[in-house]
Design a protein around this nucleic acid. Structure first.
Length: 434
DNA sequence: CCTCCACCGGAACGTGAGGAGT
DNA sequence: ACTCCTCACGTTCCGGTGGAGG
């Protein structure tokens, strides 16, 4: 989700490709116009470089915390805190990779398991993920469902405990794990082991996440903790400069591009991921226009493109009911825009439109309770903003505003299955809205 | 100061899919 | 064939609430 792949408008050939020859010519043409990058992937935020500027201290700190693993002793559990894009994951992957490499060279079995707890958010899923990641080495195969949790746990324990080894479980977005018992079980896993040792590295965006934990879990997980500060604009510039040395050809960017990318991202809590995406997309845009130099205007374009692409991508992958809800919002929004009013909607209004639309397309009409949850979800996805307000006698509700205009929303929804069917559909009871 | 609207949001529960063991 | 497991997705029920208007 973090990556906006951008092959879409790169080549919109106006003619049909007739045969292989044409295809080859197309590739040749793209190669020729590919003048700015030497290696595009180095500007992706998922790429882990060998050096992380301004994270030297964090790297050595984490390395020393994990160093007992080299003697096959369990390192302390660690919690890493910091806003998105400040290098938490990168530092862990870098240090973890080195550790594994050194361990291998010395014949010490050290495993780093990376688990994204945003997706893998229950004990059951975490355990099966551990099982699957270890399958290739020591544990027998473990399937994705069907067994009771304790059976899976027992299998993993017996699978792991066949030799002296250290297993470090990285739980990214650990604050997303709702189930307290899951963390409790994980922190106590060592108690069932004789030979192997397990440590946990938790990564969290939320500094306050430990406040609500069981005290035993809290003290166990937080044996060590590290806080990652946001990068400032200067540091972001260093990071970008470091990357472009190998990612881009020399002298292809204006001198104000890097400071601009850095400044724009520094405004958003110093997010290096954002800065890299911004730079990469800027270069892509310049390249497509066959320009030799990336300039500030490309950065501005890139900024809005990234946001639009992100929203479009999210919307496309939404389940049908949620897209239907967006259609309802779109209609209301358009209505408000035509009336020249600010399009701030309430849950009730939206629910009424949604009810009409769902009947029209013969879909089940979900309850308002459920739709309320959808609205909250769309809010966290950043495609609308909803805040709870009280309107006195007129009750308490969410005020909802789209982050894109109705025209853009319409454009994004254009290709989905509802658009045609709803084409001429008019809202009932429009007066009710006034 | 009190009321009362129009929802919010937690909790418990139901159903059905996908899979495992016996 | 049957039982038992988890998860995803929804519903039902219901207590809670900020503040404009009486």
């Amino acid at each position: 989700m973090s990556n906006i792949t951008s092959l879409d408008t790169a080549s919109e050939p106006t003619h049909q490709l007739q045969n292989l020859n044409d295809v080859q010519q197309l590739f040749d043409r793209i190669l020729q116009t590919n003048k700015l990058f030497t290696n595009r992937d180095l500007l992706r935020s998922t790429y882990i470089p060998e050096t992380l500027p301004h994270r030297e201290k964090e790297i050595t700190d984490l390395a020393s915390i994990l160093s007992p693993a080299m003697n096959l002793e369990a390192p302390s559990n660690v919690l890493l805190f910091g806003k998105p894009g400040v290098g938490k994951t990168a530092v862990v992957k870098l240090v973890g990779g080195e550790l594994q490499k050194h361990g291998k060279a010395l014949g010490k079995p050290i495993h780093i398991l990376y688990i994204n707890a945003q997706i893998t958010d229950s004990l059951y899923k975490i355990l099966t993920s551990i099982g699957q990641q270890l399958t290739s080495d020591s544990v027998g195969s473990i399937s994705s469902s069907g067994l009771p949790v304790d059976v899976i746990l027992a299998r993993i324990i017996s699978g792991i405990d066949t030799q002296k080894q250290v297993i470090i479980i990285v739980l990214d977005e650990i604050d997303r794990i709702k189930d307290d018992a899951a963390l409790y079980t994980l922190t106590r896993i060592n108690e069932g082991l004789n030979l192997a040792r397990v440590s946990i590295i938790g990564i969290s965006n939320d500094l306050k996440f430990t406040e609500f934990l069981d005290p035993r879990v809290k003290s166990s997980l937080g044996e060590e903790s590290m806080i990652f500060c946001p990068y400032d604009a200067e540091q972001l510039q260093d990071i970008l400069r470091d990357r472009i040395k190998t990612a881009l050809k020399p002298n292809v960017i204006d001198e104000d591009v890097i400071p601009l990318c850095a400044a724009l991202s520094a405004q958003e809590h110093g997010d290096a991921r954002r800065a890299l995406d911004l730079l990469r997309v800027s270069v892509e845009l310049a390249e497509r226009k066959n320009e030799r130099i990336v300039a500030a205007k490309h950065v501005r374009l890139a900024q809005s493109k990234i946001e639009k692409d992100r929203i479009a991508e999210v919307v496309r992958n939404l389940p049908a009911q949620q897209r239907l809800l967006l259609h309802a919002i779109r209609m209301l929004q358009r209505y408000y825009e035509h009336a020249g009013k600010q399009s701030i909607m309430t849950t009730g209004e939206i629910y009424d439109r949604y009810t009409e639309l769902s009947k029209k397309v013969h879909y089940a009409t979900l309850t308002q309770r459920r739709i309320g949850d959808f609205i909250a979800e769309l809010d966290t996805l950043g495609i609308l903003s909803a805040r709870v307000v009280s309107m006195g006698r007129r009750g308490k509700t969410r005020q909802i505003q789209m982050t894109v205009s109705s025209a853009e929303l319409e454009h994004i929804l254009k290709e989905d299955e509802f658009t045609e069917e709803l084409g001429q559909f008019k809202m009932k009871n429009q007066t009710k809205l006034l």
